[in-house]
Design a protein around this nucleic acid. Sequence first.
DNA 1: ACCTGAACACCGTTCAAGT
DNA 2: ACCTGAACACCGTTCAAGT
Lengths: 231, 231
Amino acid sequence: MAAKGGSQGKRPQRPAGSLPSMEETGSEPALSIERIVATAVELLDAEGVGGLKMRRLADRLGAGAMSLYWHVDNKEQVFDLALDSVLEYRGTPQSIEAEDWRGAIFHMLEDWRASMLRHPWSASLLPRRALGPNILGRLELLGRILSRAGVDEADLNGAIWSLWNYVMGATLTRANFDLSDEDMLAGQQRLAHLSAEYPTIERARLLLDNDWDGVFRKGLGFLLDGLVPSR
Amino acid sequence: MAAKGGSQGKRPQRPAGSLPSMEETGSEPALSIERIVATAVELLDAEGVGGLKMRRLADRLGAGAMSLYWHVDNKEQVFDLALDSVLEYRGTPQSIEAEDWRGAIFHMLEDWRASMLRHPWSASLLPRRALGPNILGRLELLGRILSRAGVDEADLNGAIWSLWNYVMGATLTRANFDLSDEDMLAGQQRLAHLSAEYPTIERARLLLDNDWDGVFRKGLGFLLDGLVPSR
DNA sequence: ACCTGAACACCGTTCAAGT
DNA sequence: ACCTGAACACCGTTCAAGT
């Protein structure tokens, strides 16, 4: 489950002739993994993880119900591909990366989180999915920057995973809690009735008062303080 | 989604007469939320999230296929209840808690993580589920200890959420990657072929060489260093 | 090579009916 | 109050067949 094949299909690479970006010009362009993945992302954005059904995806592509199965092994693979497609990273210029490692890490990890929050379904998907090329690319970049910043070879994996854990937790929590502000409110109101049992978090209004972005940056800073020796 | 009702059912509290712990004595004891939840946890442990089907759960309870729906609204509620039931915390003695706040936090959070790893399905469930009484209890305890340790009222929520994020991310990652060592191995082997593109993480053997427990404790320590003023 | 509809297996949930 | 089987709606996937 952790790191399966990336984007291999049974289908050979499509010849260079076809134009992927012709819009709905009467008849749809031919099916292709690219179109399937792009449309899957649209559908997931619009309806969430539960809204992605093979039939609806095919429908939206103007294709017959079961045509997808020629391009894709199964629904799992659609998830894998959609997830990785959303995590591309344009990267920081090498120059910045070299002189301001802290800024480079913050930039990449905040962008990671932002990318996932733009597609909230991706947060719940990522921990259970294959590591596609975009994800691996980000991990590689992270390792490189940390290494240059002075993290020992022996501590590198630990540092990478610590940051991964923090980013994943923060993003997942934020994505899910954010989906339902009313629920948070309801939860806090229920808490009020139980203030005898949960006085501290009730008084702090834990479920309401949150500067998620600020909290994220602050904790990330603390982690980096510890992980990277302050030469 | 964030914080729905805890354990209210349509069913009134069962009268105090019945014994919950009589084993399979020929005929099964009557259905009850307690039995349903306990059996759901068994099933989840044995077969994972995908293995919990209402029919199979009923089967295992020796009940007719659809009897569950009298005790429970729907499958979602079974998940909510199973999750919270697994997160009970016996707690630390007040004395320890007062003098060694750091130890108390480590104890509670490591226990939290361990409880979830004992039931790996719980990790993927938690971020999307209602906050049941056991979860709220742990958050309350965490808030209380942090507060006593000197965290400002204004910083309390941020501190709690930072720790929550870290624990959730670490546990989720560990639970999922751990499920499939072979996949990790396969992933690392695939990485070897791509060492041109991912030289750093390939060399570090990121996908293989991991002291998860140690990494968890270390990162947690760094976070606490930052979050709690070192008087 | 690429697409298609019919058909199968499976599953959550409702409902009318039992005791 | 508590349990039940039949039935419905829905969905992933296979398959034999089309072009």
